[in-house]
């Protein structure tokens, strides 16, 4: 991972190694508190994607590919989208309308409250994080792929 030929300088790599977990933590915080504070699934997901992108920029594409299983990320993305749809259909089955709330609402302002909304926020967060990261990943790798073909 610490190959000096790939990625940016040692300083950037070290700073990234320290800060990237804080960024991930902040993203998770925003997603989990989506029903209580400003932010939510989309905003938190974007921040999670930025954490991954930070690693890609600092350590280079090859090192990231070794560290992350890209195919697995693609699968998580599809699974989270499918699960969101299933939550909607469960709403029809248990509540009578698409995306209907079927869990107890709990006390307002508690972390575990607001019925299905936190679950939906988590699914959106995963989906957005993976999608945004993979979009940049694919676009950044486009020239390599074309060069390989020629």
């Amino acid at each position: 991972m610490n190959d000096p030929k790939n990625g940016m300088t040692l300083i950037v790599k070290t700073v990234t190694r320290v800060t990237v977990w804080l960024i991930v933590l902040y993203g998770i915080y925003l997603i989990l508190h989506g029903h209580l504070t400003p932010g939510g699934g989309f905003g938190g997901g974007v921040i999670l994607a930025l954490a991954f992108l930070n690693i890609m920029l600092a350590y280079g594409r090859d090192a990231t590919q070794k560290w992350l299983n890209i195919k697995f990320l693609e699968d998580i993305e599809a699974v989270s989208a499918t699960l969101f749809l299933f939550m909607g259909i469960l709403g029809i089955a248990l509540g009578g309308r698409f995306l209907m709330n079927f869990l107890p609402k709990g006390t307002p302002h508690a972390l575990f409250s607001a019925g299905t909304i936190p679950i939906l926020n988590i699914l959106i967060g995963i989906k957005v994080a993976m999608s945004l990261f993979l979009v940049v990943w694919v676009l950044a790798g486009l020239h390599e792929e074309e060069g390989g073909k020629k």
Partner: peptide, 17 residues
């Protein structure tokens, strides 16, 4: 009515999965 959106969307996600 909602199945007109849910069915093609579900099949698109499942195909990619």
């Amino acid at each position: 009515l909602p199945y007109f959106i849910a069915i093609p969307l579900l099949s698109a996600f499942l195909i990619s999965l």
